[in-house]
């Protein structure tokens, strides 16, 4: 990624800051608890997407105060982080569905076998 090498971008580079945050905050997927850590306009985008279930390019562009082509790059990165789903047809103002496919932690093999065995026949 082009932003990760050079460290945090300058303050006035809005796009750069959004991209940097998205690349660095959660290591892989964005979980609900990760959303809390984002700074404001970016968090508002994730919150709105979660609450309404979808978000459009123009909405992201407005919330982040970025021209559409830059907002698109932010969206692409959020898609990569598995929080938004790419629509089947793009069009002028594509709408992205929110994907909150987070699994809870599995317990397999963490509890001693003899405990699990006793639970198995329940």
């Amino acid at each position: 990624m082009q932003f990760s090498k050079s460290g945090p971008p300058k303050k006035d580079d809005r796009l750069g800051n959004y991209m940097w945050e998205l690349e660095h905050r959660p290591q892989s997927k964005i979980l609900p608890s990760d959303v809390l850590k984002f700074s404001d306009p970016l968090r508002a985008v994730l919150n709105q997407a979660a609450r309404i279930g979808r978000i459009s390019l123009s909405e992201v562009s407005k919330l982040l105060d970025l021209p559409p082509e830059q907002a698109q790059r932010v969206i692409d990165l959020i898609v990569e982080k598995d929080f938004l789903r790419r629509p089947s047809s793009l069009g002028d103002n594509p709408v992205y569905e929110t994907r909150l496919a987070v699994r809870t932690r599995k317990l397999n093999d963490e509890l001693p076998k003899e405990i699990l065995n006793k639970l198995d026949d329940l």
Binding site: L31, S33, R105, E110, L111, P112
Partner: peptide, 15 residues
């Protein structure tokens, strides 16, 4: 607390 919830605990260590 959130870290424990996310990553879980090592139950053998707890015992």
């Amino acid at each position: 607390i959130m870290r424990v919830l996310k990553e879980g605990i090592d139950v053998t260590l707890l015992t």
